[in-house]
Design a protein around this nucleic acid. Structure first.
Lengths: 198, 198
DNA sequence: CAAAAGTAAGTAAACGTTTGTTTACTTACT
DNA sequence: AGTAAGTAAACAAACGTTTACTTACTTTTG
């Protein structure tokens, strides 16, 4: 039996992310992807049932999976609050800085009904990631460090501004001056922390 | 000369927003839209040059335009800081609550390269909206009420969590219990304000 | 321990559909 | 009578996916 060529599988995934980032999810076609990855359309269908299956697996396994792993690096739910938040922000920012193409699909995950459905259906596995962050937050609520809010609200206050800042960061890479400096990022992180403290 | 049927124009726009919200931007086709709006494909092309032109005009004129107008209602750049932020939040939340379909395209505006390009090209007109918010922020920086940051960072801290909360709100309308209550929203708004205060 | 048999990976070309857009025509008003 | 709005039907191109075939490797066999 002829063995799989793992380079081809990898090329399919990474070129798909590149097309999505540069031309948008609505401009990704299977034929275009196959051509760009230097592969026959059929090759994509060996591993993936159809386009939907491909996009969902790309989104969940590739993007979310590696993002979650990166964000939790050297993070401990019992860290002091400010320190923990700074770690999460630093990890996420570094991750996207180094994986720009992942960011675009991540953003589509918030608007595309297809990916949204996939994200919800995954259910428990999402918890796998958010569990440490969740217990970090509950811990500090119990300790009286921060205000009590539903998990969704905590998450919005903690991470939403960061994603906006990353977006701005990328938009300024092609402009004369980067406004999202490390200093700005640190100041914003401090503001987020301060807002949550009791 | 036969006069325009304004109802048809309106149907095209509103049904497009509905399809985008329910099936995603990548599933909106001109033929599907024409059929759903009970109109010939040609009719769409009377007013719009092509699909791209249609989407950009839908996004800019329809969605952004009405959003900006709604958010600035009863807002004054010289309002006390906390009061001003609460007004902006309340306006934006009410607007999307009443115009759910607009929210989906707004989110696509952040990820789709097409709409992103349109948004940037509009340039000055975006300023038209953000100008009052911008001078509100500069005013309070000068007064020493809030910390100094680039405009982009202020905007991220102020509005990004709100959009996340609106998203959660919509996702919970189909579930047994709404977690994004007025109380939660108000608490989050307070946290955002507190974070920005000096 | 080579050569033949077996098999999944991979390809090129094509399938029927759907896409964005246009053509040729009709309608409803000034 | 004149004209832009609007329609039904069609266009080539592109779509997602499949068919028929070849390739490159593993395993079995003599």
């Amino acid at each position: 039996m002829r063995p799989k060529n793992l380079e081809k599988e990898e090329a399919i995934r990474s070129i798909a992310l590149q097309i999505i980032a540069e031309e948008g999810l609505e401009n990704l076609s299977m034929q275009k992807l196959a051509k760009a990855a230097n592969v026959s359309p059929r090759t994509i269908y060996i591993k993936y049932e159809n386009k939907e299956d491909f996009l969902i697996k790309l989104f969940i396994d590739e993007v979310i999976g590696s993002y979650e792993k990166a964000v939790l690096e050297k993070f401990d739910p019992e860290m002091p609050f400010a320190e923990g938040v700074k770690r999460l922000w630093a990890n996420a920012f570094r991750y996207f800085k180094e994986n720009k193409h992942y960011y675009a699909l991540m953003q589509y995950g918030k608007s595309s009904p297809l990916l949204n459905k996939a994200y919800q259906e995954r259910g428990i596995r999402q918890g796998d990631f958010f569990a440490p962050v969740h217990s970090f937050l509950s811990f500090h609520v119990k300790e009286g460090t921060i205000i009590k809010l539903p998990m969704e609200a905590h998450r919005a206050l903690l991470f939403a501004p960061l994603f906006d800042l990353i977006n701005e960061y990328f938009e300024h890479t092609q402009r004369p001056k980067q406004v999202i400096t490390d200093k700005v990022l640190a100041d914003c992180c401090e503001a987020v922390i301060k807002g949550l403290l009791k």
